[in-house]
Structure formats: structure tokens, C-alpha cells
Write a protein that binds this DNA or RNA. Structure first.
Length: 589
RNA sequence: GCCCCGGUAGCUCAGUUGGAUAGAGCGGCGGUCUUCUAAACCGCAGGUCCCAGGUUCGAAUCCUGGCCGGGGUACCA
């Protein structure tokens, strides 16, 4: 489906050619939404740069483009202004026609990709034996949004939850569990332990590891036993992993995140491939010995002393590291899963790590030139004191506690603002509003920056928040509910003509037409906040429309049906957009 | 030291491919409900876009050099 900007673009390409011939065949007419509404709907900014290139007055260039522009059926008004801006006002009929196409499309105008790709999105990645905490929320939420957007486009999205389930820390944890069994033979069955117990054991084990040399030796031996596949050790490890997986599933379900057990591909899944990775690097002539470790040097990386910085793939004691696992995972995803693009959603501190992994994948040829590798970095969540977000006591904020508080705060606000809601719906609404607010606060900020966590702001019904967007949806649904009560037939509104008689109607229509492009923008930039900004603008445009344009009490049936249709499309777009963010809507709130 | 990221209104943040008078929300001041959820809308006040150069018809945006903050920088992830 050609969207509005494409149509304008192609008219201008022809106008350019008509005015200046083939010399400007590849010149971009620079079509953009108008910077200011009083200038029109769209503008073309090509005349200034082209004037420079042709050594001609840019205003004359603009005039000549306009003289060659086919305005028929698309532009109401075309004006040259300032140094050579071409301001465009679209015909209401052209907007309405385009909108009609959009509203008839069950895909809301989002273009299917020319080539359907398999895209791996690697996100969340919590650590086994630890409760999920605030440090996991950004990867989980941002990654889920990205996966949803790419899936909406029509790609084959492979979600990968790269669980941290392997490594030296499990040696000490398991050894500690065995100690407990020895010391207290009558303790509960180990299978009965829940994630909170494991977290406590983990801390105890760490303390013992740091203070008790004898335990530290046993813990290291336990790592070897684990890696060697010792039955008893493996059994305990598996117990730990299973309990953790249950916990993760619970969190994902409450967060409305599309990750399930089928998406789990933990670090341990690559154990058997690690030897091949090192051998493969050696075969390619990239492997070097340095200070007893086996490493790869990628050009352009330096350590603190200005020496080349290695990426260690095998430690001096023979153990492997996350670089090795990441190489194995990438190779698996490309060779076995057919990935054309791999997206890693991790915090910004890992930027250098992924830069080195990507460089190595390119050098050794495991990622060919057609495989796109994206690291999607994000900043830290800060408290109001601009320090990393902690509990009042200075501890780590558990994700479950955060979700509980979000729902409780949402429930309190809803009870206060709308006491008439039916009891059976309160819980679902508090869930959608609370979790939605929490997720939206994260997604609506430019992800690469740190952001300040503030309950009152994220749960406010004013400003760029989830409740504000959800409320716009609710207001629309309320209109349709009222229509039903008044026996107004809304079943055939999709066949009614769209009439754009006044500015708020035009504004909402133009905003709705931009949705498909926004989805593409997010898919390419991997910046969910752009979609948030768009939806906020859409909700604002709708609220203005709502104030200015009575729907059910419109002057005549044609206007009423047109406004119902605009409202319905706005609702669908809001619901779809919020769904891409992983946020639910309700009929009431 | 070197590398990466950030610095925009009192606060929290947007700012599209370099484009016209830099925008929102909160907070402050003032309006708008017998009428579809006022959980909203409208208006006013508020700016050294960190600083200094440079490129350009045009710079918050690009380049160079500073300043401030965060992160990374050899066997944790």
C-alpha cells in the first residue's frame, strides 16, 4: 500500500524530472510532515539544496518544481515560502480516500517486507537461582516490544531467552546445598525450595566462598564435577534451573511478555559447541595465546595501557566465558535457525563486548555480509536521587515487588477516580493500567539514556503515559457503548464516507495515516519511544477531536457516521500500537 | 590515558534526512462540564539547546577542541 508520503514523493520525483531533466533523477525531494500546522500538511525541502547545486535562486527552483507538479486529486494548495520551502496542503478527499484504504486493511496499512526474514531477538536473559529484579526489566520489556514489532511486519521472529544457567557460581551454590543436606539431614527435600530460598543460599554460598578457603576449593571442584556431568551434581543443578524457570514464567505472565519455555536457550545449551568455537577460530588463524589464555584480537580495541585488547575465549584454567558462548549462540542462530538478523537487547555496558563479538564473527566469516547484527543498548533506571534505583533500604528492587506496587497504586487511583466500576473488572483494569504504566515509562524514554523512575509521573493521566493513551481508547469505546444504548446502528460505518470538514478531523486523519510508517521506523531504529511519541500524539489529536467534534450528537447522520468511523480507526490504531508495546487496553477504566 | 554514551524550560522528557518562530507534560497563573469518561480540553508565563570555534543559504542536529556526568577498558556477565 502506498502511504501518503510515498505518493507525495513520487509526484515530486516526476515534477523534478519535468523541471530539470534526468540530471536530478536521483534527487530526494525531501518530503516531510509540516513542521508547523499553519504551513500546511506536508512540505518539500529540496529546493534550497538543489538551488545550491544548480547555482540558481532556490525560490525560482521551487517555483519551477511547483509549475511541473501534478496537483490533480492530491493537493489543495501548494505554496512556496521562505527561502524555498514548498508547503503542501492535501485535498480532504485524498486524505479520506487513503484513510478508507487503511481502515479496510486488517493490517492497518503496515507493509509486508519485500523479503520475509528470520530475525532472532535475544532478550531478558535473567540468571538462574536469582529472583528477577529491576535490572532485568528493561531488556525484557524493550526486547519484547521489538519482537512484537518485527512480527507485526511479517517477519519470522525467533525469541531467544539466553538464560544464565552455567558458570562458576553454580559450583559454590551446589556445594553449599550439599553442605546443608549434611548439616541438617532433616531439612526439607531440596525440591521444595523456592526461588527466594535459592537467592538466600546464593548469598550464603558467596559469603562462604569469600571467607572459607576450604569451601572455595570444594566449590571449584564442584564446578568441574558439574561440567563433567556428575549425576548428583547435575540433579541439584537441574532442580535449581527448574525452580528458576517457574519463577521466570510467572513474571513474564504478569508482565504480559511473550516469552515461554520454548524460547529458552540457556548458556548451557551451547556447552558442547564451545570446543568447536575455539577450534574454528584456530583454523581461521585468529586464535592466539596470551598470558596463558586463548584469545582473539580484533582491530581497534585497546586496554587501559593502550595495548591491543583481547577477547578471551578460553581462560588459562581451560574454562570458557560468555564471549565463547555468544559466538556459539550466534553461529547456531545463523547456521541452524537461518537468522538474517540478530538483535541483542542488553544494557549499554556490554557495548564493547558485543562490538568485539560482532567483529570476530565477521572476521571468521560465521556472520556473512548479509547477516545484520544489532546490539540494542539501554541505560540505567535511576531513583529520584539520580542514583541507580534501589529500595529505601538500599537493596535490589525485586521485579515481583515492583509489579505488586504498580497494580496496587493503579487500583488506588482507579478506586478514587471511578468508584462506580463493577467489582469484577477492577482487578483486570488495575493490572492493565499498573503494568502498562510501568512498561510505558520504560519504553517511552530514548532507551540509550538513563531514566528516572517516578510512580506518580508514570501513573498520571496527563502527559506521555500509558493511562493517558488507555483513556483515549476508553473514551472511544464509551462512545460506541452509548451508541448501542441509543440503538444507533454502527455496524455499517465502514461503508460510510469519511468527511473531513474541520481541523481536528483532518488532524486525526493525517495522524492515523502515519501509523504504518512508524512501525517501520521502529523496526529499523529499534527505538520503541518513537512509537510511544506517535501514539501520544495520536491520543492528543483524538482528545482534541473529542472536545471539538460531537460524535453521537453530530448535526447529521453522514457526519456522525464519519466521526464514528474515525473513532473506530483511532481505537484500532491505539489498541494495535499499545499491543506492540505489550500493553493491554480495557473497555472501561 | 584511550574508547563508548549522554548534557535541551524550575523538574521529567521529545525534537524526523540539517529546515521556517526549539516542543510536550509536571509544577506556577488563568479559563472551560445540564451534553459521548473534566481521568479531558483551552490560554498565559517560563530557553546561554554545556562552552568555544568551524562547515552551510540555514545547526539543538554535522565536524574539531574543551567542560561536566555515566559506563567500559584481560581471564564475571
Amino acid at each position: 500500500m502506498p502511504d501518503m508520503i510515498e505518493q507525495i514523493h513520487s509526484r515530486f520525483v516526476r515534477a523534478l524530472q519535468g523541471a530539470f531533466g534526468d540530471a536530478v533523477a536521483d534527487t530526494d525531494p525531501l518530503i516531510a510532515p509540516a513542521g508547523n500546522l499553519k504551513f500546511g500538511d506536508y512540505q518539500a525541502n529540496v529546493a534550497m539544496s538543489l538551488g545550491k547545486r544548480l547555482k540558481r535562486n532556490p525560490r525560482e527552483v521551487a517555483d519551477e518544481i511547483v509549475a511541473n507538479l501534478d496537483k490533480q486529486g492530491l493537493f489543495d494548495d501548494v505554496e512556496v515560502a521562505g527561502p524555498g520551502f514548498i508547503n503542501l496542503r492535501l485535498c480532504a478527499d485524498a486524505i479520506a480516500g487513503e484513510l478508507a484504504v487503511l481502515s479496510g486493511d486488517d493490517h492497518l496499512g503496515i507493509a509486508r517486507p519485500a523479503q520475509r526474514q528470520t530475525i532472532v531477538v535475544d532478550y531478558s536473559g535473567p540468571n538462574v537461582a536469582k529472583e528477577m529484579h529491576v535490572g532485568h526489566i528493561r531488556s525484557t520489556i524493550i526486547g519484547d516490544c521489538i519482537a512484537r514489532v518485527l512480527a507485526m511486519q511479517g517477519h519470522d521472529v525467533v525469541r531467544q531467552n539466553h538464560l544464565g544457567d552455567w558458570g562458576t557460581q553454580f559450583g559454590m551454590l551446589i556445594e553449599h546445598l550439599l553442605d546443608k543436606e549434611q548439616t541438617f539431614p532433616d531439612v526439607r527435600q531440596l525440591e521444595d525450595y523456592v526461588i527466594q530460598d535459592l537467592e538466600t543460599f546464593y548469598r550464603d554460598a558467596k559469603r562462604k566462598f569469600d571467607t572459607d578457603p576450604e569451601f572455595a576449593i570444594r566449590a571449584r571442584k564442584r564446578v568441574v564435577a558439574l561440567q563433567a556431568g556428575d549425576e548428583r551434581t547435575l540433579k541439584l543443578w537441574k532442580m535449581i534451573v527448574d525452580e528458576s524457570r517457574t519463577h521466570f514464567s510467572d513474571v513474564y505472565e504478569r508482565l504480559n511478555v511473550n516469552l515461554n519455555n520454548g524460547d529458552l536457550k540457556p548458556e548451557s545449551a551451547y556447552n558442547d559447541a564451545l570446543v568447536d568455537i575455539v577450534n574454528g577460530l584456530a583454523d581461521a588463524g585468529l586464535l592466539q595465546e596470551s598470558q596463558g589464555a586463548r584469545v582473539v584480537f580484533a582491530p581497534g580495541f585497546e586496554d587501559a595501557d593502550g595495548h591491543p585488547l583481547p577477547m578471551i575465549v578460553q581462560k588459562s584454567d581451560g574454562g570458557y566465558l560468555y564471549a565463547t558462548t555468544d559466538l556459539a549462540a550466534a553461529r547456531h542462530r545463523i547456521d541452524e535457525r537461518g537468522a538474517a538478523r540478530i538483535i541483542y537487547v542488553t544494557d549499554a555496558r556490554q557495548s564493547q563486548h558485543f562490538a568485539m563479538v560482532f567483529a570476530t564473527l565477521r572476521m571468521v566469516g560465521w556472520a556473512g555480509p548479509h547477516v545484520r547484527l544489532d546490539h540494542v543498548p539501554f541505560g540505567t533506571i535511576l531513583g529520584k536521587d539520580n542514583r541507580p534505583f534501589k529500595t529505601r533500604q538500599g537493596g535490589t528492587v525485586k521485579l515481583i515487588d515492583l509489579l505488586d506496587e504498580a497494580e496496587q497504586r493503579a487500583a488506588a487511583i482507579i478506586n478514587q477516580k471511578n468508584p462506580d466500576l463493577p467489582d469484577g473488572k477492577r482487578e483486570a483494569i488495575a493490572h492493565a493500567v499498573g503494568i502498562g504504566a510501568l512498561k510505558y515509562a520504560d519504553l517511552s524514554n530514548d532507551r540509550v539514556k538513563d531514566y528516572v523512575f517516578d510512580w506518580d509521573r508514570m501513573l498520571a493521566f496527563d502527559g506521555n503515559t500509558a493511562p493517558y493513551l488507555q483513556n483515549a481508547y476508553v473514551r472511544i469505546r464509551s462512545i460506541f457503548r452509548k451508541a448501542h444504548e441509543q440503538d444507533i446502528d454502527t455496524s455499517a460505518i465502514d461503508a460510510s464516507p469519511i468527511v473531513l470538514g474541520n481541523p481536528p478531523e483532518r488532524a486525526i486523519a493525517l495522524q492515523l495515516l502515519q501509523f504504518p510508517r512508524m512501525v517501520d521506523v521502529v523496526a529499523d531504529s529499534l527505538e520503541p519511544h518513537r512509537l510511544c511519541n506517535y501514539l501520544y500524539d495520536l491520543a492528543t489529536a483524538y482528545h482534541k477531536f473529542y472536545e471539538a467534534c460531537p460524535v453521537l450528537t453530530a448535526d447529521n447522520v453522514a457526519t456522525r457516521n464519519s466521526r464514528l468511523r474515525l473513532s473506530a480507526l483511532a481505537a484500532t490504531t491505539l489498541r494495535t500500537g499499545l499491543n506492540l508495546l505489550g500493553i493491554d487496553v480495557n473497555e472501561q477504566m
